[in-house]
Amino acid sequence: MTAPVVNIADLRFAWPGQPPLLDVKAFELAAGERLFLRGPSGSGKSTLLGLIAGVLETDQGSISVLGQDMTQLSGSRRDQVRADHLGVIFQLFNLVPYLSVVQNVILPCRFSKRRQSEVTAAGGADQEARRLLAQLGLEDPDLLARNVTDLSVGQQQRVAAARALIGNPSLIIADEPTSALDADTRDRFIGLLSAEAKKTNAALLFVSHDASLAKLFDRAIDLSEINAAAQLAGAV
C-alpha cells in the first residue's frame, strides 16, 4: 500500500480573533485518487487548500504532503514542496495577464528544479507545454502565442490546467475552477483534467460548492463531514 499524498491529523485553524474555522481529526488523499470536496461558501474549503499547499500555517495538528509534515517545515521548505509537487488551479483570473499562453504554462518550471528536470527529460518545457495544451484541446500555434487575456474563459481554464499539470506534480488542487463555465464546458474540462491527472497518477483534490459534480470523481465528501468546527457551529 502506497503512502497517502495528503494526510491530515488533528488539524485546528482559526483566523486571528475568529472562532475555529477548521477542526479536522483525520483526512487522507491517496495517490491517483480524484476527490471531490464540497461545502458552502465560507466553510473553510479555500483555507484548507491554503494549509495543504503550505501557504497558511496551522495552529495545531499535522499536515503531511508526500510524507513531509508541512507543519514542521520552514516557510522556504514548504514553498519548495509546493513548487515541486503541487499544481493549483483557481476559479478565475488565475493566469498571469502579461504572459503568453505557453509562458503561463511553463511558469512553474521557473521556480522548481524538479519540474525543470521533468520537462527537460520530456523534451523541453516549451514542447511539454504544447503537448499538454494539445491534450487539453489547444493546438492552434497562433492561439498559443497570444496573450492569455485574449482567450475565452474556457480556454483560460484549460491553460490553467496545463500549468497545474506541467512537470508531473503529485497533487493537483483545483479551487472552484468551473464556477464560471457553462455545464458542457465544465464537464469537458473536468474530464480532461481527470484524464491528465490519471496519466501521471497525480492525486486530484477538486473543491466546489456545486454538489452535482460529485458523480465525476472517485470519492466525494462534504467538508462538514470531516470538520468538527463546522459541526459545532451547526449545532449551535
Partner: peptide, 15 residues
Amino acid sequence: REMSILRATGARPGH
C-alpha cells in the same frame, strides 16, 4: 491576484 498566482505556481517570497 497576480502575486497569489505566482505564489501558487511555486514563487517563493524572495521571488
